[in-house]
């Protein structure tokens, strides 16, 4: 009787833990445990158009963008799962926006030129890149 109660509480605890873990993973938006990457005020649909307009695709392979087959820079596939940007900064929304706007300031001499991307366009582009899982 006593033993049964102990086992039962143990199972109940485990169930609660699993439920909590699942909820936490859900909150992060990705069951793989990757951090949630969101850009405040970024519009992915607009970003898709901005990528085409600025011409990022001639240097990067970017899923979902027409003619984006470039192989000068790294392919931006599954960008929401990338941990480091340009081999230097942790992949956060702020760092990504900064990189897109001023790569020459972040990493002087890199082959990615400054493209005079506006703040708003950079946020939209970042939002689009974070839709790539």
């Amino acid at each position: 009787m006593h033993l049964r109660r102990v086992v039962a509480t143990r199972y109940a605890k485990r169930a609660v833990l699993i439920a909590l873990a699942a909820a936490a993973a859900g909150a992060c938006g990705d069951a793989r445990g990757a951090p949630a990457l969101k850009v405040e005020g970024g519009d992915a649909a607009r970003g898709e158009r901005a990528i085409a307009a600025y011409g990022c695709g001639t240097c990067h392979m970017i899923p979902g963008i027409r003619e984006a087959t470039g192989m000068v820079g790294p392919p931006l596939t599954a960008f929401a799962r990338r941990t480091i940007i340009a081999g230097r900064m942790p992949n956060t929304a702020d760092a990504l926006v900064r990189w897109i706007r001023t790569p020459q300031e972040v990493d002087p001499g890199t082959a990615m030129p400054d493209l005079n991307v506006t703040e708003r366009d950079a946020k939209d582009i970042a939002a689009y890149l974070y839709t790539l899982r």
């Binding site: 011409g55 695709g57 001639t58 240097c59 003619e67 470039g70 000068v72």
Partner: peptide, 20 residues
């Protein structure tokens, strides 16, 4: 007519025309 003439596309074109 393959790419709009923007700074980004021009930079990409001169760096890897054969890929594009």
């Amino acid at each position: 007519g393959t790419f709009p003439n923007t700074r980004g596309n021009l930079a990409g074109w001169i760096a890897n025309a054969q890929t594009l």
